[in-house]
């Protein structure tokens, strides 16, 4: 028993792929109260399972059935499988009283985007992390819609092919639908649209996201309204950087004046680049980083809320940009 917290929450990660593995590293590194204990897969030859085992987690290739048959169940489960799998598993976690953080686009629980709506959902038993594209773009849609009405918002997420695993590929419809729906429900746009592009170029491209918002014509003209809009966008950039240091605007937002073909609305274009933290995949995989960082942070905060203790989350600033406390751990895991 170390530190001021009497108790640690044990966590299971279901789905030992790119996302599950990256999440494991994030939790080890950034949270003192959420401790990865189980890594659950279905393929005995999975690299992710082998890696988790080397790091001392209890691993299985027998799926969620094995996990739920354990004498000691986890307090919290992070699901990084597929939308279909989570739809099937969610009621079982609920029945077992396990808090579920869903990293698939299943959207069983409410959408959660930490800088926008975490505080409203601290008591939920199942929360959905939207998608990587959603975590990167919904904050910016919100930043715009909190200043001016947004009748329509569109996001384009470009990710490197290497960082899109089989789950993302099999779930591409759910990705676009879930993201579009979160652009509306959490971002605050009246209508949302989402597009994902996989690019195989080598060396891999950094994750890029573009947010387009239809805004009232006067918001695109120089003046107080436009200034407030810009201020809100830059403030959101800083907020997201607290947990994803590589999140930044690639250039200043671009404003285009109203057009008839845009139903008389003007447009703001916000280009975002997400450089990954490199916890598991190299830094081009910002798409993994942003959703696992959000999920790990949400897990830490929700556990702290449940246990009535302070969050132990270590922000990027706390850790220092160059600090890499996992170097030894990663070497042990063979990365």
């Amino acid at each position: 028993m170390t530190g001021q917290n009497a108790r640690k929450a044990s966590a299971a990660i279901v789905g030992p792929g790119n996302i599950g593995t990256d999440l494991m590293f994030k939790l080890m590194r950034r949270s003192d109260i959420v401790e990865p204990r189980f890594m659950v897969g279905v393929d005995p030859t999975s690299d992710g399972l082998a890696r988790a085992k080397r790091l001392g987690l209890e691993t299985t290739a027998d799926g969620v059935d094995w996990l739920l048959a354990q004498d000691e169940l986890p307090d919290i489960v992070f699901e990084a499988t597929s939308a279909k799998a989570h739809e099937a598993n969610a009621p079982r976690y609920a029945e077992a009283g396990i808090l579920a953080i869903d990293l698939t686009p299943a959207a069983v629980g409410p959408y959660l985007c930490p800088p926008v709506n975490l505080s409203f959902n601290l008591d939920a038993t199942n929360v959905n992390m939207i998608t990587c594209g959603g975590q990167a773009t919904v904050p910016m849609v919100h930043a715009v819609s909190s200043v001016v009405p947004v009748t329509y918002a569109e996001i384009v997420a470009s990710v490197s092919s290497r960082s899109a695993g089989p789950g993302t590929r099999a779930n591409i419809d759910e990705f676009t639908e879930t993201t579009a729906s979160a652009v509306e429900a959490v971002g605050g746009a009246e209508h949302g649209k989402a597009i994902i592009i996989l690019n195989p170029v080598e060396p891999p491209l950094m994750m890029r996201n573009t947010v387009f918002c239809a805004i009232p014509p006067d918001a695109a003209e120089p003046g107080e309204l436009k200034d407030r809009l810009l201020e809100s966008i830059y403030a959101m950039e800083r907020t997201v950087q607290e947990y994803v240091p590589g999140y930044h605007l690639r250039t200043d937002p671009q404003f285009d004046p109203a057009r008839e073909t845009w139903r008389g609305q003007a447009r703001v274009f916000i280009p975002i680049e997400v450089k990954g933290r490199g916890d598991y995949l190299p830094d081009y995989a910002g798409n993994l980083d942003i959703i696992t960082a959000a999920a790990a942070r949400v897990g830490d905060l929700m556990v702290a809320h449940r246990f009535g203790v302070e969050t132990t989350w270590k922000s990027s600033a706390d850790l220092g940009d160059l600090a890499d406390s996992l170097t030894g751990v990663r070497a042990k895991a063979g990365i």
Partner: peptide, 12 residues
């Protein structure tokens, strides 16, 4: 090496 669909990169 941008691919089909990445029209947004043109502005960039």
């Amino acid at each position: 090496g941008y691919v089909g669909g990445q029209e947004d990169m043109i502005i960039d």
